[in-house]
Structure formats: structure tokens, C-alpha cells
Design a protein around this nucleic acid. Structure first.
Lengths: 195, 195
DNA sequence: CGTCTATTTGAATGTACTCAAAAGCGGTGG
DNA sequence: CCACCGCTTTTGAGTACATTCAAATAGACG
């Protein structure tokens, strides 16, 4: 199993001891996924914290009308956006689906408690990780409130240039909080501007 | 200085040793504030992590048109929403303003590093704190994408019933991502429904 | 009381949505 | 290899939610 990426990621913020490294390696489970595969279904027990080793995936919420709303995408070196395995809730309200071939590293819920008990560094690592995530989410909320769809889309493709190739437009639209039809119109308007 | 609330809050998630408690007490600074007072101005150095001991405050972003956009409110027992004192950025893009008489406990930026070095429990505490915040923010983003203004306003007053009394409507509108005029119309529509 | 700001109300406008239909695209099987 | 199927994207017309601008009313504070 390839733990290079996750270890490199963690060690960029903290310095894991050999013991801690071994512990982590001993609890993670490799989990390949395929394009379109439903990795976690909304309502399922939140069994694992998930790290993306390779590929693309998305986490989304299905509303009462049956419409899906993308919470966030994830790729190489990111934690999957569904954090309910860390919460007190036994089940997650979010679904997670593969967008291409890829591999996850899973940390079982039970191992998480143990990990945080054994590895003080992991608390530090996730504290830093989540604190940055909170700052980014505040920025995303503000952007939603201050910028029209066109500007948000432009920022998305600037920030995640690769994402466009793997993610269907309708999912990007959903992530941005607009309909796929409207994103299509935004894009054709932008294309007209350039020419 | 009254550190009861902050200690109670932290000890609800972890168990601080006497040493850790003393350390925390030794670094926090009491900082009263007044209604309308600008506690932190956007662009200022992010000097302190701020805990609200009493009163209400808000953190907001001023856009290029000079319009303010409320990131979040905070009250007794909450950390102020501006987390830039924990980031690598020296300055914060957010302003923080008092909404009534109140008091903050400040933890200076320099003490934070030291605190995390000395108190492993604080990493744990903030890890849990931020992980819950991330989950709430994901919910807020989704709500923004799935629910119209009326429903978001209803949820706001249900979730923070006290807030309404201390916070001007225009700030609630800003937090919800709508104009004060439209919130006024939403409210009058809701009032008509009840009768 | 008078002033200043917040809130309300109304009319016109704009951004984004819904519904419907056509066009594009990718895969699969004949 | 091409024809067909299913799904995504595009395009268009009509609509709705929310904004802007302007003016009137209401509240808060000295």
C-alpha cells in the first residue's frame, strides 16, 4: 500500500515519530474506486475518514426534492470532504462518489480515537488542517454573497484548473450553487467576451 | 479576570491539567468592548485569537464597493470568527465590531505558538472545535444553495433566538446574503402568513 | 424635540431558474 | 464502422426571486 502521499502531507505540518508512522500505516486500508461508483451513500454509518491517494471524487447532499448539491470535490492529497466519521453522529448525511478511477486510504472510525490518543501530533495536524479549512470556507461563503456566478466560475477554474477535465459541468454548477443550464449560458457569454 | 467560561468551554472537550490552566490564565488579556466599537479593522495585524466572555460581536468583510458582508456573529462562550491570528498571514482581511457592551479574552499570537507547544490538550480542543465548525460551514453553504431567503431567515431565528434582539436587521440580512430591503419584505410576508 | 440611521414600501430591473427542445458526445452492439 | 442509445450540454422563452433606487416612516439617541 502506498502511504507516501498521506505521510508527506502530514509531515509537511508536523513531524511524526517512527512509532506514529507505523501506527498510521497499521490502521489505514487501501480502497480503490471507479468512475461513478457510490463510495458512501447518504444515511450510511460514517465508518471511515477518507484520504484521496489518487483520482477525483465528490461529496454531495441530496435534498428533499431529490436534487443533488455538491459540497466539495477532492483529489490527490486531500481528505474527502465528509468529516462525519469524526463527529458524534453515527451516520453521514452526505454521499461520496468517484469521478474517475482512483484510490482512497480509509481510517476506520474506531482507529481514529485510538490514533488521537496515541499520536498527539495528529491532533496538531488536523487542528491546522481544519483551521485552514474554516478560513477557506468563510471565504467561499463570502464569495457566494459578493460575486455573481460568472466571477465565481472564473475563480473556480483558476483555483482548480485540472478539475474541469474530470468533473462534469453540471457538478461544477452544483458546487457553485447554480443550475447547469445557467452555467452553460455563463460559459458561452465568457467565450464571446474573449473573441 | 473571569476565565470561568473559557475554561468550562475547553474542559467540556478535554481535561486541562493545573499547569495548562495556569498557563492559559497567564496569557489571556481581558478586553472590554462597547456597542459599535471597531475592535479589529480589516488590514490590521491579526494579533489575537479572541474569545467572547460576554456580549455580542460580528466579523465582516468590506468589498471593493465598500459594502460590508457579515461573516458571522459571536456571543458568550464562542471564539470570534476571525481566525487569521492562527494563519500564516500577518494581517486579517476581516473587521470585527462590538454590537453591545461586552468583554473579550485575547490570546496574543505569540502566546498561541507557545501554548500549542506546552499544552497538547489545546491542539485536541481546537481540532474538535474546528472540525465541528467545518461541518457547520458545509451545512451553511448547502443551505445557501438549497433554501430561499425566507427559509434561511427562519432557520436563523430558530437557531439563534437571542441574536435578533442584539443584531440590527441589516446585519442579519448581510449574514444571510440578502439586502436589508429584501429581508424587510420577507419579514412582512412571514408576518402576513401567521395572521 | 430634532437629527441620524434603520426599516419599510413601491416600482423598475436584473440575475438566475424552470421547462422544453435541440444539439453534442461517448459508449455499445449490430 | 456506423447507428443508435442515454446522458450532458446548449439554446430559447417565460418566470421568479432578489436587487437597485427612491421615498416615506419609524426608532434611537443626544
Amino acid at each position: 500500500m502506498n502511504t507516501d502521499i498521506i505521510l508527506k502531507n502530514i509531515n509537511s505540518q508536523v513531524t511524526l515519530s517512527d512509532q506514529e508512522t507505523e501506527f498510521l500505516k497499521s490502521v489505514v486500508i487501501a480502497r480503490p474506486f471507479k468512475p461513478g461508483e457510490l463510495i458512501v451513500r447518504a444515511g450510511d454509518p460514517a465508518r471511515y475518514l477518507m484520504f484521496v491517494n489518487s483520482g477525483y471524487l465528490m461529496t454531495y447532499f441530496t435534498d428533499t426534492d431529490g436534487k443533488d448539491h455538491v459540497v466539495q470535490f477532492a483529489t490527490n492529497g486531500w481528505w474527502a470532504p465528509d468529516l462525519y466519521s469524526l463527529s458524534k453522529e453515527p451516520n453521514t448525511p452526505y454521499s461520496t462518489r468517484g469521478l474517475c478511477d482512483g484510490e482512497l486510504l480509509l481510517i476506520p472510525r474506531l482507529s481514529l480515537d485510538q490514533m488521537f490518543r496515541v499520536c498527539a501530533n495528529m491532533d496538531r495536524y488536523f487542528r491546522i488542517q481544519f483551521q485552514n479549512t474554516v478560513i477557506r470556507h468563510q471565504g467561499r461563503i463570502l464569495k457566494r454573497h459578493t460575486a455573481p456566478a460568472e466571477e465565481r466560475y472564473q475563480e473556480f477554474i483558476d483555483t482548480y484548473p485540472r478539475m474541469e477535465q474530470y468533473v462534469a459541468q453540471k457538478y461544477i454548477a452544483s458546487y457553485l450553487g447554480i443550475t447547469p443550464e445557467f452555467l452553460s449560458k455563463v460559459r458561452s457569454k465568457m467565450a464571446r467576451k474573449i473573441s
